[in-house]
Amino acid sequence: MFVLLRFIIDAGFDWLAQQDPMALLLAASALGAGAAMIAGIGPGVGQGYAAGKAAEAAGQNPKGVQQITFVMLLGQAVAETAGIFSLVVALIMLYANPLFQSPALGILLLASTVGAGVAMIGGIGAGVGQGYAAGKAVEATSYRSRLQGPIIRTMLLGQAVGQTTSIYALIIALILLYANPLL
């Protein structure tokens, strides 16, 4: 059983080693860019929750629709951030991958690239969490639309703290791309 597995892995690596390293690197970039955008799941869910809460709030308190919309847009734009970070990493890998100039071992570059992309999947959590915060802030605005200021302040503060893990993901991805200590 294990002999078969080892055989497949060896054959796989041999096949990989025969490919043009540049082609492999490009392939890995493509893979990494695609993997990074999986993080779009998070903001999608989060912003949807915020929108739903906003609709409910508008139905409950039609007079405060302006404030409700403002808070919703604000919260959704912040929830978008994790997706934007992933977009940045994906674009880096497609247009200006710094690993292309790196004179190093083939597999390592592949792995770094794919790893950078996969790291951004961590943005899902931030997207969902910040969207939830936005939705709750919208709900609070519908009850007391005059407290818009403090509500927004608290929401932004909470969302900024929730952003932290996606920033860690971004930093790791950037380190892998630009200042890779393993190369």
Binding site: E80, T81, I84, F85, L87, V88, L91, A160, V161, Q163, T164, I167, L170, I171
Partner: peptide, 20 residues
């Protein structure tokens, strides 16, 4: 670190949106 997270997120958010 969370103090530093602010300028990082601010700059990358704006940059990413505009670049995208």
């Amino acid at each position: 670190i969370s103090e530093l997270a602010l300028p990082i997120s601010l700059s990358f958010r704006l940059f990413g949106n505009m670049l995208g």
